[in-house]
């Protein structure tokens, strides 16, 4: 494969899990309370997948465990806010921290180490569609990805469709715009909010599975900031699925570039990773509601 082939193909592979996590975040943002625990939920998903799949030898059970575990953590954050009137934002930050601690403990019990655990069986193989994959550029990009990437792509499509074209997505959006519109329609807003959080957990779980399966190992801090990037994507993508896709692809490209940078370009890879934050920070700083809250000269 040429340099360009690898770059494009990697961009997409990196972008997909970020996009999926961001779509999960979009559900909560649209419902009015952005779930900032995406980073932790990805880690929880990746770990519970690795642990369950390794223990049972079944990828399917691993994925189910990941979905259940991440959704449970997400619901914990929502419940702390709903039942105990904790600040939802702080509760989600706490879930991030909780996952870090719990996964550390669990890793010692399950794998006997807090470090990297190679799990070659879990590595998702690259598909090879023969003639298709030899099409210049498009071939490697679309037809020579790892199997898991196709699953994630499907999940992204499902999440986007569910957001914009199902009754659930409609209710989530109505909830964030005006809670009363749901109540007068006889729908319980709290249920919708819980489901939105569960959806964000499930999306992050699959993103975590994808990360674990693309390296064929359990790596502590496997998300390495992708959950935060996903939050940034929600914001930069203007809260529309298509916008999220564009933003994720841009970030995927930057990541792929930084991986390739060491070898080919003379730009330090870390500096390339600064870019998404700088761009989004500039957007956040320049965009305002006009004047400090309740301010006057």
């Amino acid at each position: 494969m040429t340099f360009a082939d690898t770059l494009l193909s990697d961009s997409l592979a990196i972008a997909l899990p970020i996009l999926l996590a961001a779509l999960g975040g979009l559900f909560t943002e649209a419902a009015g309370t952005l779930n900032v625990a995406l980073e932790g939920l990805i880690v929880a998903g990746a770990f519970s997948f690795a642990a369950a799949a390794e223990a049972t030898g079944s990828i399917g059970i691993g994925i189910a465990a990941a979905l259940a575990c991440s959704a449970a953590f997400a619901i914990l954050a929502a419940a702390a806010a709903d039942r105990l009137s904790a600040n939802p934002f702080v509760a989600a930050l706490a879930v991030n921290l909780l996952v870090a601690g719990a996964v550390g403990i669990a890793s010692e019990h399950v794998f006997g180490t807090k470090g990297v655990v190679p799990l070659a069986d879990l590595l998702s193989p690259r598909v090879d569609l023969g003639a298709f994959s030899r099409i210049p550029l498009l071939g490697p990009l679309l037809f020579r990805q790892r199997g898991i990437s196709y699953l994630v792509a499907g999940a992204c499509a499902a999440a986007a469709a569910s957001y914009s074209s199902t009754p659930f997505g409609l209710r989530v959006r109505a909830l964030g715009m005006r809670e009363g519109s749901l109540r007068i329609a006889g729908v319980d807003p709290r249920t919708v909010r819980y489901w939105a959080f569960a959806a964000s957990g499930a999306a992050c779980a699959l993103a975590g599975v994808a990360l674990a399966r693309s390296v064929g190992a359990w790596v502590p801090n496997i998300a390495s900031g992708r959950g935060w990037i996903a939050l940034v994507v929600v914001y930069l993508g203007r809260k529309r699925p298509a916008g999220l896709a564009l933003a994720s692809l841009a970030f995927g490209f930057l990541f792929a570039l930084s991986n390739a940078a060491q070898a080919v370009l003379s730009v330090p890879p870390e500096l390339i990773l600064v870019l998404p934050y700088v761009v989004t920070a500039a957007a956040a700083l320049l965009e305002g509601t006009g004047g400090a809250r309740g301010s006057r000269g």
Partner: peptide, 26 residues
Amino acid sequence: SLLAQHLTVAENLILGREPRVLGIFL
């Protein structure tokens, strides 16, 4: 007003008792 302001008239109207195709989609 208890209308969700960025949804369409139809979406506001059917909220809570949405007609479906294939049992899933709006």
